[in-house]
Design a protein around this nucleic acid. Structure first.
Lengths: 182, 182
DNA sequence: GGGTTCATGTAATGGGTTACATGATTCC
DNA sequence: GGAATCATGTAACCCATTACATGAACCC
């Protein structure tokens, strides 16, 4: 998955500066990682060069200049295309969260499809871990045991969340769905 | 965190070839990521050059040659030093799992300390996400809402696991603890 | 005959981190 | 006066991925 694309996705939410993006991602903590300024600014420049975003330079009298980026129409199209085309089998948690944000951008259907994909992935992952358990019965290694347990605990939690979220999204749309529009 | 070091940690468990390592990691799925052969072999070569591991070339008549790597005494020392020195604040889930495996290598105390560190981290992360919730009350964005919910669900699950594991490790050692010896 | 598993390796490429440069304001 | 926040940017470096090369069994 492209971090570049992810930034583009964030901009659909609202126009932001590189610094803003850094803050948002920092707040999400280990869910998406903490990309450095070097990466953020470079990607923003590339997006601009490709015409996928536009900049507005805002000069505050008592503060440093801010460069606020907005997504442009070509950017929306690229994003749309990505959402339609991409099938994400086996992604890390970090990648999943980034995709979660991207997939929700343009269509609710893509969002649901994405969650369902993740669900399949988790079920498969769970099966592999549980199989490891059985093989592990004889050879007792504390670390392997802990990692396996940890993985299963997270998988169960994630599955529960996915099921309840999918249920809510398909049967009773969240309240904000109607109010958003676009 | 160094992937190189992580490989070294895996070798304390048992001697392995590059191919074996690949299989073990594949099995753990997104918990640790799926490093490529290119990375594994290159790191193994580097470890060998630094004298942290040793190789034994095993030629099977009907199979390709296997190069089985074992950790050497200097390697153990480097690992020990790393376990003693490293304080891991804010790590991704992937990094945490790698550290979990590494920390358990040499001392149970390091393992407990590591889990406790993660616990602190999760609590902090939880607080930030919950704060975001409150600020989010007015501006309603489905994606932000989902990511936040997802993060909190995972945090709760992880916290529960950490608490129960810490309790078990400190009060009633797991059965395997005594049988291991080393 | 062709795909899969086992098994190792190297080189180019890509892309994120680290480190550095700059500079004003605000809080202790 | 000095640390921290706000704010942007570039270049070197590290290192993982990708792509390529090789080769023998085994199963369909």
């Amino acid at each position: 998955m492209n971090f570049r694309l992810f930034i583009l996705g964030l901009l659909t939410q609202q126009a932001m500066s590189g610094y803003d993006i850094k803050c948002v991602l920092k707040r999400l903590g280990w869910l998406v990682g903490n990309p450095s300024f070097g990466s953020i600014y470079t990607n923003l420049h590339a997006l601009l060069k490709d015409g996928l975003v536009t900049v507005k330079v805002i000069a505050n009298p008592h503060k440093p200049v801010r460069k606020v980026y907005s997504i442009a129409e070509p950017g929306r199209q690229v994003l749309q295309k990505w959402v339609n085309d991409t099938v994400t089998s086996k992604a890390s948690l970090k990648t999943f969260v980034m995709n979660l944000i991207l997939a929700g951008v343009l269509s609710p259907a893509a969002l649901i499809a994405h969650l369902q994909q993740r669900r399949d992935q988790i079920v498969a992952h769970q099966a592999v871990l549980e199989q490891t358990t059985r093989e592990l019965d004889e050879e007792i290694d504390l670390r392997k045991y802990l990692v396996k347990e940890y993985g299963l605990a997270l998988a169960a939690a994630e599955l529960a969340w996915l099921d309840s979220t999918l249920d809510r999204l398909t049967h009773q749309p969240l309240p904000m769905e109607e109010t958003r529009g676009n």
